[in-house]
Design a protein around this nucleic acid. Structure first.
Lengths: 334, 334
DNA sequence: TTGAAAGCGCTAACAC
DNA sequence: GTGTTAGCGCTTTCAA
């Protein structure tokens, strides 16, 4: 591997001059600069980022820890984050924890050893005890996304989940539905709780009573959603509409509806929270509340870069981005 | 940041002893080791990976360059790669190029500056000129996946695309189909060419003539596939079955079929190459040839780690993994 | 405008 | 068993 010294030798200058040239210092004579650049070109020299990081005490590498890389939501987030970061000359290390606290722990430790300069994390835990512990293990330069964790004092960017829950429900109410089922997410997780709260709120405002039998948590998994929906739909007084808490549960619900021989939306309306580009071939086309995925990713990286550059300690901020109702064909008026 | 020196001071030993302890050298007395470990614990010391990398001349960081992170295929690949790597104590930097050669270039350069120890890349280019150029820019410790590039002398792991094309087609032929449409991938790309070759081969063996009007490339995009399928299906002598070249094109085809009011599989059978977990709610359930995604990812990382450890220069190997036909409900006998 | 030299945190060869 | 020390490739004073 060719080092700065080789370039210096070839250009007959000192390594300091090479360094100055590479870093665009203005105090290098034009002629010298040219000699150095020729040498760099001839030797195919690329500065050693590791050495530079050691010297500088910082790396410019950003860690992005997601809890489920196979979910289009996080895939899209990482795409947005990476694009912005690359434009700012930073590398992003994407790590996947598969919602596994132990893996999250290993990943964070490795990231720490590698001295990443900043972190964007979609946490896998949920309660305040976890929040306190996590807070001790991650740098100040961290932005938390998606799931809000109590006692975790960091910037936060996510969906306004309560609004999301409210919006789908209000839409269904407007269509005349009164018995609305809710296939929920994971118990104890903020996104799930908020989406449900929005659902309950909308019912309450419309003076429609909430039937606990019609609210089942499915841990954000499609198989559980399938079973939950099947259970609801085989009851004597089945719901006329179902809200599914995320993209995976929505698929489970759609499956259950068709497996039981119901027509959607003629027999049951289905509305999802969280859209997915992979739903394009679903029939009927899915009505759902979409997250502003790009915006979440971009806001997170913007805040992070801000924290990484202005060492000034800004106090933690939180941003809940508004969802968008995308009306397609899976909901009908009663 | 607490350094090795702080630990040494606190434990009243030299930094060499701390290093030996951390790296599990057996020549540290039990009692000393314990003192050091206590100091590490008390100070919350984590070795500086950057310094270690500089000293060692290698980083242990693996770069994974994918061309489309939002495609479940690559998301799943990165999941498999990362899991294995993490177990081997290595970090994976996932970078996405969005099939953009310029971005690929930037990414590779950054990875080079960061001195990644090894690379797994799903290339965005295709021809031999690109292959030669790419070969000069990536380390010997590289495994190429998915798309085979001429003149690129590196380990390669991918699907046996020809078999995949043959398998779906044979299946359709067995069901009695004779007019079979093919919605292809991107012109010039090995996977697309091979899948088509398999298709043509199967027809040839069955003595069914290949109608060029029934073979349209859709660049692996769903919108183009939609249009191509729509065009085919509105012709006077429409195909009784359609093969779609990947997960995205398959969705486009399914959309077109239903948009034109055809029933699948009653009117037209549809079979895909490359499955996706996001298809679970598709009706009819999709018959397709699945890639052994996990195996591809694992084989790639295994070969890579082998190259990274045995500096011995093994000559480039290639592995084409067998696809699996998953019969569901989107194909019917004529 | 350029160069000499210190030092970032670590490992490993060698001395004790 | 443990300590001393050189040096990985770079940036950054400071001196010339």
């Amino acid at each position: 591997m060719v080092s700065i010294r080789d370039v210096a030798n070839r250009a007959s200058v000192s390594i300091a001059t090479v360094s100055a040239t590479v870093n665009g210092s203005s105090s290098v004579r034009q002629e010298t600069r040219q000699r150095v650049e020729e040498a760099i070109e001839a030797l195919g020299y690329r500065p050693n980022g590791v050495a530079r990081s050691l010297r500088l005490g910082r790396t410019g590498v950003i860690g992005l820890v997601v809890s489920e890389i196979t979910n289009p939501f996080f895939a899209e987030i990482s795409r947005a984050v990476e694009e912005t970061a690359l434009n700012a000359g930073k590398v992003v290390v994407v790590c996947n924890t598969d919602e596994n606290l132990e893996r999250e722990s290993v990943v964070l430790d490795t990231l720490r050893v590698q001295r990443v300069a900043g972190l964007i994390i979609a946490p896998s835990g949920q309660d305040s005890e976890y929040g306190t512990a996590l807070g001790r293990r991650i740098p100040t330069q961290t932005v938390v996304i998606d799931r809000h964790i109590p006692h975790l004092d960091r910037d936060f960017v996510g969906l306004d989940n309560r609004s999301a829950g409210r919006m789908v429900t209000e839409y269904l109410l407007r269509l005349g539905h009164r018995r609305i089922g809710f296939i929920g997410g994971r118990e104890g997780v903020s996104t799930a709780a908020d989406r449900f709260a929005g659902f309950a709120e909308a019912l309450h405002v419309a003076r429609v009573s909430l039937d606990p039998e019609l609210c089942i948590d499915a841990n954000y998994r499609s198989e559980l959603a399938y079973r939950a929906a099947a259970e609801m739909l085989t009851r004597t007084s089945r719901p006329s509409a179902i809200v599914a808490a995320n993209n995976l549960t929505t698929l489970g619900v759609m499956q259950a509806v068709s497996a039981l021989g119901f027509a959607c939306p003629a027999d049951v309306s289905v509305a999802g929270i969280d859209d997915s580009p992979w739903n394009i071939a679903l029939r009927p086309r899915l009505t759902s509340v979409a997250q502003p995925v790009q915006e979440i990713g971009r806001q997170a990286i913007d805040w992070l870069i801000e924290r990484m550059t202005n060492s000034a300690d800004i106090s933690p901020r939180a941003m809940q981005l508004a969802p968008t109702l995308v009306v397609r064909e899976s909901c009908a008026a009663v």
